[in-house]
Each structure stands twice: as structure tokens, then as C-alpha cells.
């Protein structure tokens, strides 16, 4: 049991979040253990992105508790509203997370290599000579070593997304967050990105992936979570989840996806 709690990389407890009048997250609880690949699925507007963005403080929760590798990023104060740790602490806690966006968000004024070097050099203050071999290795891994001197604007969407994954990995994160990484891609380009993600999963990277790719959720994920209207409707292991969904809403959603 002791060992198990030590393995918890991310723990979200009773998360509530509203945008003005609109309550988007209505009490979310889940945790992710080391090496887990959690796929989050659900209809549009159900709060998946918001939930993911709350993990790394791109959005701030109203109440609840967020723990990352055993350290609280936010927890409720006496008034029942979430209080965040200060900026420096927050940065330190979140240093072990990396994120990949639907729109890639590469830095267009930097080459592929410069995109990878930027954060290790600027944030971690490491030397370019030290980081470059690691960056080259990552680019080889995602199959884009020969594009290292190209600008992102010259790459296909699939290539850009693989660079974005490599860029996040260059910071050596322990947890990778993906927000619909293939949704902005032409169908024929999703495969190469999913392949990269599968390889990452096989290397036991802890991953939280919001996705519409049911095949990926079924085959690469260790856990699947179905969200609707700001709550977790159902979660489980993919075989069980896809073969025997228990909730009506899940059944309806899965039928729609096929």
C-alpha cells in the first residue's frame, strides 16, 4: 500500500471549475500511477480540455486538490476555495509535466532544433553543447532528425506535432499531457503521431491523453475515462470498458463513435 501511494504521479480530488455561470467541472476525482496511460474520452464540451489544463495550471480550479508527484499544487483553504502555492513553487512542481497541444504551438521563428533547445537552455540554464546531443537523439526518435534545421512552417502537421512531442520531452518530464494531439491533422497524418505516442507509452511514460481516437484508447491506454457534462461517467481498463460499458451514456457515446 505504501508502495502504491508512492507510485501516484497525479491525484485530482473533488475538482470544481466554472467559467462564470457555467460549471464545467463538477467534482472530478481520479489518480494516475507511474507508467499509466490514461485516455480521456467524451463528447465535445464535456470539460476534457479544461480538466487537462487544470492539471498544469493553464486554468485554475475553484475548489479541490491537485497533487503532482506527492506535492500539492492547489488545495482548499479554510473558506473551501482552492488556494495555489506561490509562483516559484508552482513552477517547480509543474517542471515534471509536459504538454502537447492540438494546434502544436511550435515557435515559428525558431528552427526545429532551436525549438527543442529553447527550454532546456533558457529554463534549466544548461549549455547548448550539453543539450544538443539529447535533442538530436529525441529528433531521431520521432523520425525528424533530418528536419532539424527546418522552420516549423515548412513541416506537415504530423511532423510539427512530432516535433512538439520531442520539444516537451526535451525537458525530461515525468508526466505528459496531450490535448487531442491528432485532431488538427489530416486523417492520413494521424498515424505517425499516434505511433510516436504508442512508443512513448511502451517506454512507460506516464501519460494523460484527451482523444477522439478510440483505437488509440483501446490499444495503447492502460485506463479509459469517459467524461460527460463535467463529471466522470465511467472509467476502467480498456478491454472491459469497450467490451462492457456499464453506463447508458457510455454505450450511447461509443455507438456514436463507431
Amino acid at each position: 500500500m505504501q508502495n502504491m501511494t508512492n507510485n501516484i504521479m497525479l491525484k485530482m480530488t473533488d475538482i470544481h471549475k466554472s467559467f462564470g455561470e457555467l460549471e464545467v467541472l463538477k467534482g472530478i476525482d481520479f489518480s494516475v500511477a507511474k507508467g499509466d496511460v490514461l485516455a480521456i474520452i467524451g463528447p465535445s464540451g464535456s470539460g476534457k480540455s479544461t480538466m487537462l489544463r487544470c492539471i498544469n495550471r493553464l486554468e485554475e480550479i475553484d475548489s479541490g486538490k491537485i497533487e503532482i508527484m506527492g506535492r500539492a499544487l492547489a488545495e482548499n483553504g479554510a473558506d473551501g476555495r482552492a488556494e495555489y502555492v506561490d509562483e516559484a513553487k508552482s513552477r517547480e512542481i509543474l517542471a515534471c509535466t509536459g504538454m502537447v497541444f492540438q494546434q502544436f504551438n511550435l515557435f515559428p521563428h525558431m528552427t526545429v532544433m532551436e525549438n527543442l533547445l529553447e527550454a532546456p537552455v533558457q529554463v534549466k540554464k544548461r549549455s547548448v553543447e550539453e543539450v544538443r546531443p539529447e535533442a538530436e537523439e529525441l529528433l531521431r526518435k520521432v523520425g525528424l532528425f533530418d528536419k532539424r534545421d527546418a522552420y516549423p512552417g515548412r513541416l506537415s502537421g504530423g511532423q510539427q506535432q512530432r516535433v512538439a512531442i520531442a520539444r516537451a520531452l526535451a525537458m525530461k518530464p515525468e508526466i505528459m499531457l496531450f490535448d487531442e494531439p491528432t485532431s488538427a491533422l489530416d486523417p492520413e497524418l494521424t498515424g505517425e503521431v499516434l505511433k510516436t505516442m504508442r512508443e512513448l507509452a511502451q517506454e512507460h511514460m506516464t501519460m494523460v491523453v484527451v482523444t477522439h481516437e478510440m483505437a488509440f484508447a483501446r490499444e495503447a491506454a492502460s485506463h479509459v475515462m469517459f467524461m460527460a457534462d463535467g463529471v466522470i461517467v465511467e472509467q476502467g481498463q480498456p478491454e472491459e470498458f469497450f467490451a462492457h460499458p456499464k453506463q447508458e451514456r457510455t454505450v450511447a457515446f461509443l455507438q456514436n463513435m463507431l
Binding site: 498544469n56 493553464l58 513552477r91 509543474l94 517542471a95 509535466t97 509536459g98 504538454m99 497541444f101 494546434q103 504551438n105 511550435l106 515557435f107 529553447e118 527550454a119 533558457q122 529554463v123 534549466k124 512538439a164 520539444r167 516537451a168 525537458m171 499531457l177
Partner: peptide, 16 residues
């Protein structure tokens, strides 16, 4: 804002 968010998730500060 995607550029700001990407920079933030890489640990960059606002001035950086």
C-alpha cells in the same frame, strides 16, 4: 495564446 501556453508548459517565465 497558444504561444504563451506552450512557453508556460515548458517552464518559461513571463519575461522569458
Amino acid at each position: 495564446r497558444g504561444q504563451y501556453e506552450a512557453a508556460k508548459t515548458l517552464g518559461m517565465t513571463y519575461p522569458q
